[in-house]
Every structure is written in C-alpha cells, then in structure tokens.
Computed example of a mutant assay.
Amino acid sequence: MASGTAIRYPLFPYYPAVIDILHNRNAGRVLDAPCGTGWLGDMLSAQGSRQIAVDGVGLWEFPPADAGYQSVTEHDLDTPLKVDTAYDAVVCCEAIHLMTNPGVLAQSLYQALRPGGTLIVTTPNTWYLRSRWQFLMRGFHSGFRPMVGKQRGVDYIAYFPFSFPQLHLLLTHYGYTDITLHEVNEPKPKRMIERLLAVPSRLYYRGRVKGAENEDVRQFWRQAGSDQSVYGRWLVVSARRPDEPVPAQTQA
C-alpha cells in the first residue's frame, strides 16, 4: 500500500503471489471474481500498475469507489456468469471452497477468459498436517467446521475443502491446461512436528515421481509433493485456457 493509505482489508501472504502472476503473464484486462472489498484493485493502483484494467464481480461485499475498479457487477457466482469482455486473466481468491457449485464457477471463469488467458485461484489448503490431523481426530478440516445453524449470505460457510490434487482434477475436467501451484511466502512447515509427520507421504510422492509414465504425470506429483502442497496453509494455482488452434489454410 502507498504510504499513509489506510488498509481497508486484511493482508494475506498470498496477495504478492497473485500480483506476481498477473505481471508475469502480462495481463492487461483482469476480472476479479469475487472482488470482495477490493484488495486486488486497491493494491494494483497503489503499485502504479496503470496498464492493468480491473473489473469486479461481487454479491455481498463490494469495493469502495476509489479501489481501482473500472466496473463492478453484482452476480451470484454459484450461477453461470456471462461477460461481454474476453479477459487476459481472471482472479478468484478465497471463494471456490465457499461455492455450492464449484464446477459452475470453473466453467464460467473459463468462458470469461480469452484463448491463452490465465485463471488464478486461491483457496485454503487442506493437505497441510494440522488440517489432516484435525480431520482424523474430529472429522473436519481446519476452517471447515460443521455449519449447522449458519445462513448463507450472513455467516461464513465453507462447503468444499480443497487440496492441490482436487483442484487440479476440477480444472482439468473443465479444459484448463498448464495447471501450476505457486509458492506463498509463509512458514513451511509452521511447526517442526509437521516435517516429521509428513515423512511417509513425502516418500510416497517421491516414488510416484520416479514411476511416472510421462512428464505431465511427473510434474503433477512434483507439485503434489512440494512444500507448498504438503506444508502450506494456502493454495495459489494458475491455469490457462488453451489457445485456439490455428485454422488450416484452404487451397484456392
């Protein structure tokens, strides 16, 4: 944030990873869905990223007028989203686990991208050791407590816990390629006991890497067995909508 600017949203470690992907992919037109209170537009404006134009989609939370968004549309992302612009990138932060229809969301965001465009998804990671241990002991992951008595639109309700393999499967199903797990600047592991408890799974992942039948499978297991996947509290995953094939030239 610029010096002297009031912070209007919580600061999370995945923010820099998302912004770095946008810059590295040379995204000029971005859709923030959902935009929430507008951290993405706000931070891009504070950095002077004028070359990135951001539109937003919101339902219960909306950014202030000075948060750097060109337009903000009200829409429930559990229903199909139709946009008039083909975006270079779509950012979906901390939302896919809150959707009752994550497949509808994945498909809508795919259609909002131009061919070759980038999707960026962030979501809590349920593979880190404390979350696995809590599931073993209590039957639910960290942050995914039973939601009995909660009301959608009023309370925070998390429907689907995601790991990197689950997110990879969902995005692959809807046609995305180049699915990549990105590093988040956070302690990994946060507690040393996690490193000890992770030994069996790390050995398993190494075996799958060695036995992979092709490079795509090998890359999947490398990412699934990475520190970010095993120890990290967040997943930041990018994926691409494939380029459209070049039409074959017809002979006159």
Rank of each mutant, 00 (worst) to 15 (best):
A95V: 13
P242Q: 07
T123A: 11
A198D: 09
S201F: 10
Q134A: 12
M147L: 09
K210P: 00
G38D: 06
L181W: 03
Y205P: 02
R240I: 03
V237N: 00
V184D: 00
R241Q: 06
S71C: 05
A198I: 03
S71P: 01
M1P: 07
D178R: 13
R50W: 06
D55G: 04
V246R: 15
R218V: 06
S238R: 05
M147C: 12
D227K: 14
D84R: 10
S163R: 09
R130W: 14
E244P: 02
E244M: 09
T177P: 01
S238V: 06
C93T: 15
R222Q: 15
R233Q: 12
A2G: 10
M192F: 14
D76G: 10
H168S: 07
F160C: 12
Y176N: 02
F140D: 02
L203Q: 12
H23I: 12
N214P: 04
T250W: 05
Q51P: 01
G143M: 03
Q251G: 07
E94M: 09
V54Y: 02
L40Y: 09
V237M: 02
Q111T: 08
H141N: 13
A2V: 08
D66L: 10
F160V: 15
Q134F: 04
T85P: 07
V90S: 04
G153M: 11
T5F: 08
N26D: 11
A67D: 04
Q249R: 14
V217E: 15
V184L: 02
A89E: 04
G116K: 06
F164P: 00
V230Q: 02
L197T: 06
P115S: 11
F164T: 09
L167G: 01
A252N: 08
A95Y: 10
Q219H: 13
D76L: 13
D88M: 08
Y9P: 00
G58H: 02
T85N: 08
V91W: 00
F140N: 05
Q151G: 02
D55M: 02
A89Y: 00
A224N: 06
L113T: 01
F135R: 14
H141L: 07
L98N: 14
F164D: 00
R206H: 12
F140R: 03
D88F: 06
R195P: 03
R145S: 12
E213Q: 15
F62P: 01
Q47M: 15
T73A: 10
D66C: 07
G58M: 01
S163I: 09
S49T: 10
Y87C: 06
R114V: 08
L22Y: 05
V217I: 12
V57I: 14
L113A: 04
P146V: 11
P124T: 03
V154N: 09
Q107I: 13
L77V: 08
H75T: 06
Q249D: 14
W127A: 11
W133D: 03
R208A: 03
L119S: 07
R241L: 04
D155Y: 05
L203A: 15
L81H: 03
G36C: 12
I96V: 15
D84N: 09
L59K: 08
V154F: 11
D155A: 09
T79M: 08
V246E: 15
L181F: 05
W234I: 01
I120S: 01
T79S: 11
P63K: 02
A112H: 03
